[in-house]
Nucleic acid binder design. Structure first.
Lengths: 225, 225
DNA sequence: AATATATATTAAGAAAATATTAAGAAAAAG
DNA sequence: CTTTTTCTTAATATTTTCTTAATATATATT
């Protein structure tokens, strides 16, 4: 799950990031709204936490801008909040509020609640990850290239969706192996992965121009959105 | 409950969507009538909220088109409404009106009222799932192919309806087994399922052209609508 | 810059896993 | 007791996975 955190108070943003990361979420953190909008366009965000009081573009405005295109849950973060502000926020499209100072557990509880709710809304709609001209639908267990189906084996599909889900992050060969095989990693395992990566690339139709899976030398693999 | 919202005014549509979602409804939102018709065909809609003033196909026409096939409640949304318009709409098959600007609570109250009415009305009617030329009626415990009855054993029927209910989603062999047998899954269980799937396919009359149940290699089975 | 070393790619075939089919035994239902 | 349904087994077919080895490429060392 990819969570976006936007707060101009560095300490707060860092703290929120820490809590979320500890819980296993993938966190994108930024200290200003302009950057936030960029991240949203580039990543598959599942939930956003926005501070209201921010210079330039404030949290309300940012929330409004996000809602023009996206429907993932938005939680507003604020020092104090009047009922008027609360209503304003909800009208703009915010889903929940957290007032500072907040307890870590409260933050996590609200994040979880919103994600659960969001998932329920979309129960008939599968989550689709888009990577360039490819789409991956884990529920359907289907990978499409320009709408055309690509037949992947179970292992290939697992590898691809694991990389796609951790977009922009390098996954080491060891992590990859242990996550997918659920077995301890041996030096020979890297060869196995390489073969699968090769098959994947072949099936996805990688060309020197259009690369999907990046090799990070001596480390592992990465997929950029 | 699946609610369809159709309004060319983006802000209004988004707002309505928000209110409904906060109330726990599953919302399908679109800004034009053409899209709306598509959604209706693809999803099982329980209630629709239609704006009257829309370019191309207006709310009245859309309402009329929906009524040719469906009988879920339709609520019309409009800026101002004359008595003449009201009568026209009701004749066409609308169930209620809401005039803009509306209060959130009013919207929700009317939605709830209509759903309650619809539910009562349909309580004696069974929910039927349609898959290509097949229909499954869980209450009647009946499966029809082009109106002709197919005799399924209890287990076969359970498997088929479970897959049909989660249309477009892969059900792993393990999930399938545990849901239906209510027992822990053993490797040998997969053989049992395979046999039932084979019998099912035979009875449903699968041909290479007309496939109902898709095998997802190394994972499980899936039914696409 | 040349060489050595480590790591990655590619290809092919063997091995393993999974799926299909069919038939009959066991269990349950009528 | 008969019929229907479910499960087991086994033979066969198919697909996937892994191993190996030859080749290529990148990085480090001198």
């Amino acid at each position: 799950m990819n969570i976006l955190v936007v707060d101009d108070e560095i300490e707060i943003a860092d703290l929120v990031e820490l809590y979320l990361k500890n819980e296993g979420y993938n966190v994108y953190k930024t200290y200003n709204s302009e950057q936030a909008l960029k991240i949203i366009n580039q990543r598959n965000i599942d939930l956003a936490i926005l501070d209201i009081m921010m210079p330039n573009i404030d949290g309300f405005t940012l929330c409004q801008k996000i809602r023009q295109k996206h429907k993932f849950p938005i939680i507003m973060l604020t020092a104090k909040i009047s009922d008027a502000d609360k209503i304003k926020g909800l009208n703009i499209g915010a889903d929940d509020y957290i007032t500072k100072p907040f307890m870590p557990l409260e933050l996590l509880a609200r994040v979880k609640a919103q994600l659960r709710r969001y998932k329920n809304y979309n129960q008939n709609q599968n989550k689709i990850i888009a990577i360039k001209d490819l789409t991956i639908d884990k529920d359907k267990h289907e990978c499409l290239k320009n709408g055309k189906k690509i037949n992947l084996t179970p292992t290939e599909f697992s590898i691809f969706s694991l990389l796609a889900e951790s977009e922009n992050k390098v996954i080491t060969t060891k992590q990859l192996f242990e996550k997918i095989w659920q077995e301890p990693y041996y030096p020979s395992s890297s060869a196995t992965i390489m073969v699968h990566i090769r098959h994947l690339r072949e099936k996805l139709g990688e060309t020197p121009k259009q690369k999907y899976i990046e090799t990070i030398w001596g480390v592992g693999y990465k997929i950029e959105k």
